[in-house]
Amino acid sequence: MEPGEADEAAVTREVAEETGLSVTVGRLVGTVERSAPNGVFLILDYECQVTSGVLRAGDDASDVAWADSATLATLPTTDGLLEALSGWNCLPRA
């Protein structure tokens, strides 16, 4: 987040930068804390609805794709991601 930036504005900006998609930001679905070199990152995860754009990988990723639950189960993920998404009822549908 940029200094003074509201959550909704930060989510909208970051999603556009990282995926090429424009979204409407919805409800907060959960939070996660991750260790960082100088403390802890608090990550706030929001539900979003795509309104426009073409999915593309940002400059820090080699690829991007929409994934159903079967595909997601085959992909390497960050420790705890699938458990968090399941607990928040946010896993992709079949």
Score class of each variant (00 low, 15 high):
Val15Trp: 04
Asp68Pro: 00
Ala73Pro: 10
Ala10Gly: 11
Pro37Glu: 14
Gly53His: 02
Glu18Asp: 06
Cys90Val: 07
Asp45Ile: 08
Cys48Met: 06
Leu72His: 05
Ser35Gln: 08
Gln49Cys: 00
Leu81Phe: 11
Thr31Glu: 14
Val23Gly: 01
Leu21His: 06
Asp45Cys: 06
Ser35Gly: 12
Gln49Val: 01
Ala16His: 00
Pro76His: 06
Trp88Tyr: 03
Ala36Gln: 05
Arg13Trp: 09
Asn38Glu: 14
Pro3Lys: 11
Leu42Thr: 15
Leu85Cys: 05
Glu17Lys: 03
Ala84Leu: 11
Leu44Val: 08
Val11Gly: 13
Gly30Asn: 12
Phe41His: 12
Asp45Met: 05
Pro92Asn: 02
Ala6Arg: 15
Val40Gly: 14
Ala9His: 13
Ala36Glu: 07
Val54Asn: 13
Glu8Thr: 09
Gly39Met: 08
Thr51Cys: 02
Asp79Trp: 11
Met1Thr: 13
Asp59Lys: 12
Ala9Tyr: 09
Thr19Ala: 00
Glu18Arg: 08
Glu47Tyr: 00
Leu72Arg: 09
Cys48Asn: 09
Val50Leu: 07
Ile43Ser: 09
Ala10Cys: 10
Gly26Pro: 07
Leu21Tyr: 00
Ala61Ile: 07
Ala36Gly: 04
Ala9Gly: 14
Ala6Val: 11
Leu55Ala: 04
Leu42Asn: 14
Asp45Thr: 08
Gly58His: 04
Gly26Tyr: 00
Thr71Asn: 06
Val15Arg: 02
Cys90Tyr: 14
Arg13Tyr: 10
Glu14Ala: 10
Val32Ile: 12
Val40Lys: 15
Gly80Pro: 12
Val54Gly: 10
Ser62Glu: 13
Val23Leu: 03
Val25Asp: 08
Asn89Cys: 06
Ala94Pro: 15
Glu47Gly: 04
Asn38Ile: 09
Gly20Phe: 00
Glu33Arg: 15
Glu17Asn: 03
Gly58Tyr: 05
Thr19Tyr: 00
Ala94Glu: 13
Leu21Gln: 02
Thr78Gln: 09
Ser52Asn: 05
Leu28Arg: 04
Ala65Trp: 06
Thr71Trp: 05
Tyr46Leu: 00
Gly30Leu: 10
Arg27Ile: 10
Arg34Met: 10
Ala16Glu: 02
Trp88Glu: 06
Asp60His: 15
Val54Met: 09
Ala67Gly: 00
Ser69Val: 08
Glu83Asn: 07
Glu5Thr: 12
Met1Arg: 10
Val29Thr: 07
Val11Gln: 13
Pro3Arg: 11
Ser62Ala: 11
Asp59His: 13
Ser62Asp: 15
Thr78Glu: 10
Ser35Val: 05
Ala94Arg: 14
Leu75Tyr: 12
Ser69Cys: 02
Asp79Val: 12
Glu18Ala: 01
Gly39Tyr: 06
Ser86Met: 01
Glu33Pro: 15
Glu14Leu: 12
Val32Pro: 11
Gly26Phe: 01
Gly53Ala: 02
Asp60Ala: 13
Val54Asp: 12
Gln49Met: 00
Ala73His: 09
Val29Met: 10
Glu18Tyr: 03
Asp68Lys: 01
Cys90Leu: 08
Glu14Cys: 01
Thr71Met: 07
Asp68Val: 00
Ala10Phe: 03
Val29Ser: 05
Glu2Phe: 10
Thr78Met: 03
Gly26Met: 01
Asp60Glu: 15
Pro3Met: 08
Ala67Pro: 05
Val50Ile: 10
Asn38Lys: 15
Pro3Gly: 11
Ala84Asn: 13
Leu72Ser: 07
Leu28Ser: 03
Glu14Ser: 08
